[in-house]
Design a protein around this nucleic acid. Sequence first.
DNA 1: TTCAAGCGGAGCGAATCGCTCCGATAGACT
DNA 2: AGTCTATCGGAGCGATTCGCTCCGCTTGAA
Lengths: 206, 206
Amino acid sequence: MGREAEARRNDRRVLDAAREVFATQGFDAPVSAVAARAGVGMGSLYRRYGAKADLLRHLCQLAMEQAVEAAEEGLANADAWAGLAGYVRTCVAFGSGALAPLAGTIETTPEMWRTSRRSRRLLGRLVGRARRAGVLRPGVTALDVAWLVEQFGHRPPHSMTAEDENVRGRLVTIALDGLRSSPAPRLPGRPPSAEHYERRWAWHVG
Amino acid sequence: MGREAEARRNDRRVLDAAREVFATQGFDAPVSAVAARAGVGMGSLYRRYGAKADLLRHLCQLAMEQAVEAAEEGLANADAWAGLAGYVRTCVAFGSGALAPLAGTIETTPEMWRTSRRSRRLLGRLVGRARRAGVLRPGVTALDVAWLVEQFGHRPPHSMTAEDENVRGRLVTIALDGLRSSPAPRLPGRPPSAEHYERRWAWHVG
DNA sequence: TTCAAGCGGAGCGAATCGCTCCGATAGACT
DNA sequence: AGTCTATCGGAGCGATTCGCTCCGCTTGAA
């Protein structure tokens, strides 16, 4: 195997190892654990990613691209409900919300913001279509769905504002009504705000 | 204020501060942060709790007692569904599942095991009553409800076994059906096992 | 056979954390 | 009022951990 091929194989291994190590040990797991898991030396890892934050950013970017892909697949489904349900299942399955604890701990690149917004725009279309088809519970917004996805693969949030409580109250109602064998009433509280959803990712220096 | 009263006040302050600090910063937050938040010196904190693990164990114990109380309140409600729903809402509200990441990181005392089992027995009665009343979705077990509560106040799990996937698949279905304005089908997968539920808390030395 | 590009991992410096120890403080008792 | 002493607060110690660098070694190419 040539050096070039080995480099590509190493990059793949590092990415897989990073996903697994950070998912199981949390994001403050040592970089050496990632390198060991990948069967790669620290030197190779740090030549590819100049710092731990770079690796984490790349992981975020890949996860968001995966979410975009899931949304496009959902929209490709002719059945509006099956498309939305498939999106949620897919995102939860690959742990889309698992990177949420990183919010505010790493600097976000413009590319990350672009991908995030693209993902949310696609989800908006998915939800809007379901609403127009009449298969969606009244009052449910795209951000409700985004929060729901994120909640399923989440450690306790780093800050619990009144808006967070509002969001959680909605999710609890959803889960409760899913549990109950009866028709579903309208959701309580206010719809989540996009500003609140984004603000968590603002980087706090120092 | 007498020394005795000050000691009691300090104990309360430490507990409140610990809950807040660990909830917002995670369980590896420094003990000094708890002391600072409580407005108490390290000496006072460490005289009451000989080690950080002692403080965490006490926090677990209190949370489980709160869950027991919530279950008893639920059973006191004549309406079987309202009782169960109230239990879930209460547990999620005070972050009953927030201590789950501690599983396996601290030694569990016999008293903790007793309270845990008492809590689950009460939840079993709550769920059984709802089932007999016909207000509960078919196939839902007490542990389904326990997992659901825990999932809503959770960072990404430390280990993702096949059984974890099974559990998560159930929760996703519940949440999805809560989202959907249609009657709810039977839950997929197998019911969660009590052994799996408990095993996470086995202490791994070293 | 020689060269150098790329690899692995030992180890450094810094930062952090759990916990101890002791001077300061303020009720309790005479 | 004066003394005693139980309790308080927090500076600092020792140990651990982690991000990252640096260098000797491997291995494919010329």
